[in-house]
C-alpha cells in the first residue's frame, strides 16, 4: 500500500501542504512500516493543469491513497480515474496527518473540495 501526502518539506515533521497540484513535495510512504521516499512536485510551477499533472505523477508512482488539504475538479477527476482514493481535511504535520489517517479520522472525499486553479500563487 502506497500512501501519498502533499507536504511543504521533505520529511515527516514537515507541515502538510493544503494545496494538491502545487504542493512542494509528495511524501510517499508505506503506513505499515513507515518507510518513505520524498519526491519534489514537478507540477508545482506548471502554467496550467498542475492538478492533472500531479495526479499523473502519483499514478506513475503507484500510489493508492492520498492525503491532502484540497483537490480541485480536474485533479479530482484524474485521481479518481487513476483509482487513487482521496482523504482531505488534514492539517498539522505529515506525521500527525498519518496518525489521524490510521485512526480513521480523515474523511474520504467523493467530490472536489475546491474550485479549480486555487493553488496558483499569482
Amino acid at each position: 500500500m502506497n500512501l501519498a501526502i502533499s507536504a511543504t518539506g521533505d520529511d515527516l515533521e514537515s507541515k502538510l501542504d493544503r494545496r494538491f497540484g502545487r504542493c512542494s513535495y509528495f511524501i510517499i510512504l508505506d503506513p505499515d512500516t513507515m518507510e518513505f521516499e520524498t519526491i519534489q512536485n514537478a507540477s508545482r510551477g506548471a502554467s496550467s493543469g498542475a492538478g492533472v499533472k500531479a495526479a499523473q505523477i502519483l499514478a506513475d508512482s503507484e500510489v493508492d491513497n492520498l492525503i491532502t488539504g484540497n483537490v480541485g475538479p480536474n485533479a479530482y477527476n484524474a485521481l479518481t480515474a487513476a483509482g487513487i482514493e482521496i482523504f482531505t481535511g488534514a492539517s498539522g504535520t505529515v506525521k500527525e496527518a498519518i496518525a489521524k489517517y490510521k485512526e480513521g479520522e480523515l474523511s474520504r472525499t467523493n467530490e472536489p473540495t475546491t474550485a479549480g486553479g486555487t493553488g496558483k500563487s499569482r
Binding site: S48, G49, Q56, A59, N74
Partner: peptide, 26 residues
C-alpha cells in the same frame, strides 16, 4: 504509453494504466 501526456506542455492529457483523460479547457 503516456507519450502524449508527457509531451503536453499544458497538462491537458493524463494517462493511467487503464484509461486516458483529455481536458479540453486546458
Amino acid at each position: 504509453c503516456g507519450d502524449c501526456s508527457e509531451a503536453c506542455e499544458f497538462n491537458a492529457i493524463a494517462t493511467f494504466s487503464e484509461n486516458v483523460l483529455v481536458y479540453p479547457e486546458l
